[in-house]
Amino acid sequence: MRWQGEASLLQEPDIGQPVESVERPERFLVRTLGKEFLLPAAEIEWIQAWGNYVNLRVRGHDYPLRSTMAAIERRIDPKRFVRIHRSYIANLDFVVEIEPLDSGDARAKLRDGQQIPVSRRYRDELRKLAVL
């Protein structure tokens, strides 16, 4: 797989007040194919740990971000995003079904049919937040 760009979190401006909260960014700056795009955080379907990066899944495309899951988890909206596995964070707006497995783990099915793992450690928290 070839990386064609890299996303970055918005930083504090050099001068003046930030346009939006840098602690809970509403958008991520993504550089890909020599262009820069602003991806709304609300459109992130899920986030996956991948070595020294995390992948932001947006509209069927992965955008790499050099960060840790813990750092991303601290900055995204906890009412919208929930940790479901040590390697995955899901956007609750995209989760349509939680399928329990015999092992005690589960699978989250998303609107587009994708399935991502839910470990038993995070399953109860997902259920609790999904009901709210």
Rank of each mutant, 00 (worst) to 15 (best):
K109P: 03
E36Q: 13
S87Y: 06
G104Y: 11
L10G: 03
L126Y: 06
L56Q: 07
G60Q: 12
R107P: 04
I44K: 03
E45N: 11
S119E: 06
W46V: 05
R74E: 09
R107T: 13
T32F: 15
H61M: 11
R120K: 14
L65S: 01
Y53L: 14
Q4K: 06
R86C: 07
A7G: 10
L33A: 14
R123K: 13
V96L: 09
Y88C: 05
S119N: 04
P13Y: 02
V82K: 01
Q114C: 09
M69N: 00
A42Y: 13
R120T: 03
D77S: 10
G16W: 01
R120H: 11
V118S: 03
S8Q: 09
D124H: 14
R83P: 01
V82M: 01
D112V: 10
A70F: 05
V82F: 07
I44C: 07
D93Y: 10
F28W: 04
D105T: 07
G113Y: 15
L92H: 03
L29V: 12
E125Q: 07
I116R: 00
A90G: 03
L65E: 01
L126S: 02
R66Y: 03
A7K: 05
D112A: 11
P40H: 15
D62M: 13
I47V: 08
F81C: 08
H61P: 01
P13F: 08
I76R: 02
S67Y: 05
G60H: 08
S119I: 08
A49C: 06
L38C: 04
D112M: 12
R111T: 12
K128Q: 07
Q11S: 01
D124Y: 12
I84M: 07
K128R: 09
Y122S: 00
L92S: 01
A90L: 10
Q11K: 02
R83T: 08
E23M: 07
I72D: 04
R86H: 10
A90Y: 05
Q48L: 15
M1D: 00
A108W: 12
Q4P: 00
R74N: 06
L10K: 10
D124M: 13
E43S: 15
V19H: 04
